[in-house]
Amino acid sequence: MKKIQILGSGCSKCKALALSAETAAKEMGIEYQIEKVTDIKEIMKFGVMMTPALVVDGQVKVVGKILSPEQIKAMLS
């Protein structure tokens, strides 16, 4: 079970990243749970200074960028 979190206060980039992550997880057929973290206080706890950010199982994988589903797959496996 992978826990995927998207950090960002709801800008269009965050939505794009969430979509990519969801697509990646579905295509891999893994069990996953996705959560959007929009509260700025929660976001700060991950130590990121740029949004959106992708967190997998509590680990920050990417900040300030949108990734393609292909790139995210590598981070989920």
Binding site: G8, I40, I43, M44, V48, M49, M50, T51
Partner: peptide, 16 residues
């Protein structure tokens, strides 16, 4: 690199 949507985390990151 800066985008106004990141102004808040940046501000907090700097001040803390």
């Amino acid at each position: 690199p800066f985008c106004s949507c990141s102004a808040v985390p940046l501000f907090v990151g700097f001040v803390t």
